[in-house]
Design a protein around this nucleic acid. Structure first.
Length: 304
DNA sequence: AACCACACCAACCGCCAACGC
DNA sequence: GGCGTTGGCGGTTGGTGTGGT
């Protein structure tokens, strides 16, 4: 039983997003801010359900998203947090501000699960077939040192993440040199057509968006063919910059109908803009505090 | 070159909690 | 308090890319 799926309506498009749709969605968020997803399809003319729009934004288009492979530090942090929190991907993602819960979940399911299984298998039996439990006691000191090292790594990672949380995201996403190579090809095309300093300001984005929507159908179809979501990816470092630059252009944008962007000058408001949940913003016995104290406290108890 | 198997990840689905009326 | 709507979350799926044979 239950509520019928929101996407069962006739005429609602499914499947991969096209560059045109992306731009329409980005354009909407620029004007109205992220939220009010219900109104997105009607406002933009997108034939997508509100849920799909929200997902596309939070998992792909939202500024500040880091793509590409996970670093060792991120990996360790995910492992630690997963052990602590379970499959609470959203909670885990809140400690990795540049990663989405979907990304973390995917990474866990495709990489870490296997990796841990392997490690577990290696740990359970030594080369001569002895069970780890017997070894554990024998090499307890070594095991403890490893654990301590892991905790320190997690501490460091968490400290970094929390310092990101505590400082204003705005400062994190301040303007960096534009590296146009990292934008999706369809964006690059527009950029080359119009100006060499693409996305140096929100005005430019607005102009480009207008150009895009005005461009003839032939042009559009060519761009569609030449573009796909995978073209968002380039090397990891550059990609981070790309999204960072993308976000910086957002921040300088002053929407006419909403003040969500301009309000995002406080960490809280900015946090909200970057997709943090209300729960985290309220900071009422937040998970972050619990986790922080857990990791930052002396670990004497653990190492008896 | 063609086929297959596997890996990866974007997107979907269904459930649930929060919220407003 | 009941009900409908919306947003958020976690699990799962299916399309696409890639490597091996």
């Amino acid at each position: 039983m239950g509520r019928p799926p929101c996407c069962d309506k006739l005429g609602v498009k499914k499947g991969p997003w096209t560059p045109e749709e992306d731009i329409m969605l980005v354009s909407f968020v620029q004007e109205h801010g992220p939220g009010n997803w219900r109104t997105v399809p009607t406002h933009t003319g997108l034939r997508r359900c509100s849920k799909s729009c929200r997902l596309r934004w939070t998992n792909y288009l939202r500024p500040g998203i880091k793509r590409g492979s996970f670093t060792d530090q991120e990996e360790k942090m995910i492992i630690q947090l997963q052990a602590l929190l379970g499959n609470k991907w959203a909670a885990i993602a809140s400690y990795l501000p540049e990663r989405t819960d979907n990304d973390i979940k995917n990474y866990w399911n495709t990489h870490l699960k296997k990796k841990l299984k392997k490690l577990e298998a290696n740990d359970l039996y030594s080369s001569d077939g002895h069970c780890l439990s017997s070894i554990k006691s024998a090499s307890r000191g070594q095991w403890e040192r490893t654990l301590q090292a892991d905790i320190n790594t997690a501490k460091q990672a968490l400290q970094n993440a929390l310092s990101l949380d505590k400082s204003s995201p705005i400062s994190e996403y301040t303007i960096k040199p534009i590296n146009i190579d990292c934008y999706p090809s369809y964006i690059k095309q527009e950029a080359k057509m119009s100006t060499s300093t693409y996305a140096s300001s929100a005005e430019n984005i607005a102009k480009l968006l207008k150009q895009w929507t005005r461009s003839d159908s032939t042009n559009n179809s060519e761009q569609s063919k030449a573009s796909s979501s995978t073209q968002f990816s380039c090397n990891t470092t550059n990609n981070t910059n790309a999204m960072t630059e993308y976000s910086s252009s957002f921040e300088s944008f002053e929407p006419s109908n909403s003040d969500q962007f301009s309000q995002a000058t406080t960490p809280e408001a900015a946090g909200k803009f970057y997709g943090e949940s209300k729960r985290e913003l309220d900071n009422e016995v937040p998970l972050s505090v619990m986790l922080e104290s857990w990791l930052f406290d002396e670990n004497d108890d653990l190492l008896i």
